[in-house]
Structure formats: C-alpha cells, structure tokens
C-alpha cells in the first residue's frame, strides 16, 4: 500500500495578487512565475514549501498549505 505523505506548498490568492514579482526573486527553486502580468503562479511540482515567498510578499497574499501526496 502506498504511504501517504504530507507536503507543504505555497498557494497564491490570485485575485488579490499585485503581480510585483517579489516572490519570484526569492524562490530558491524557481517555482514561481508572474503569469501575464496578472498574478503569481506556483508550480506545485517544484515548490519545496520553504515559505520564503510568503514572507516576502508585500501584500501577504501567499499562504502555505499542507497537502497529502
């Protein structure tokens, strides 16, 4: 039986994001991008859940979520 594992990942509130790109600059694994100047988007595969983007986001619209993988 496959074992369930919890993974922390960043989650952006896209409607409130100002697309400044601060999170992109601090992400150590390049898991974030600003999508068409509208909002930041997280690549869940790459995100290691370090939370640096959440700490940097000036609008505080990035939260950390735990997911079962």
């Amino acid at each position: 039986m496959a074992q369930e594992r919890k993974k922390r990942r960043a989650c952006v509130s896209q409607g409130e994001c100002v697309a400044c790109g601060c999170c992109v600059k601090v992400c150590p694994v390049g898991a974030l991008e600003v999508f068409r100047g509208l909002y930041a988007s997280v690549s869940g595969d790459r995100c290691v859940g370090c939370g640096r983007c959440a700490g940097e986001c000036p609008a505080s619209v990035i939260g950390m979520q735990e997911e079962t993988v």
Binding site: V18, A19, C20, R36, G37, L38, E56, C57, P58
Partner: peptide, 23 residues
C-alpha cells in the same frame, strides 16, 4: 514589509490593468 509600496504603486496598478485588458 520592505516592498509595501509595490502594493499600491500607481504604475504597478496601471500596468496590471493594462495587462488585464490585454490578456
């Protein structure tokens, strides 16, 4: 936070509106 200005920067808001209109 250090870059709080980015949240309400008029140029940032305006360029985001342009991007929304365009994309």
């Amino acid at each position: 936070k250090p870059r709080s200005w980015c949240v309400y920067c008029p140029m940032g808001t305006m360029t985001q509106l342009i991007c929304r209109a365009k994309n």
